[in-house]
Write a protein that binds this DNA or RNA. Structure first.
Length: 111
DNA sequence: CCAGTGACGGCTA
DNA sequence: TTAGCCGCCACTG
């Protein structure tokens, strides 16, 4: 882990950690905020790497549909949903309820 | 070195 | 409206 691209990962962790409780965001939003607009996949990759690294609320990051696409990487499939519910986010069918309302844009709320 | 895959997103048919 | 394809960047085999 020397440096360079790691900056991108570090930025992802920073933003995700700044997500307020009860709020959620999307990969594309983070990617766009970091300047990697269009490369939302890299954000997902960063979260996978962030999982064992630190306590990153990755469960607050979902896809553009508000679907818990990454629940599979939380160990148990319901772990992500449970965590979201503990944060005050309602989840139905592995999907965030009122995703638009709970959506937290780093480039808009943070900026 | 080349090919396939992946926690996504946007466009086209 | 829904379904399918391509594009993005990085990692593994």
């Amino acid at each position: 882990m020397a440096a360079g691209k790691e900056n991108f990962f570090e930025n992802v962790y920073e933003v995700v950690k700044l997500i307020p409780k009860g709020r959620v965001t999307s990969y594309g939003a983070i990617a766009a905020y970091l300047g990697a607009k269009g490369s939302a996949r890299m954000v997902g990759w960063a979260l996978i790497a962030s999982q064992p690294f630190a306590k990153i609320p990755a469960h607050r990051v979902v896809n553009r549909n508000g679907l818990l696409t990454g629940k599979q990487h939380f160990g148990e499939l319901n772990a992500m949903q449970v965590r979201l519910e503990q944060d005050g986010v309602k989840v139905e069918q592995d999907k965030v309820v009122d995703f638009e309302k709970l959506f937290w844009d780093p480039g808009k709320e943070l900026l």
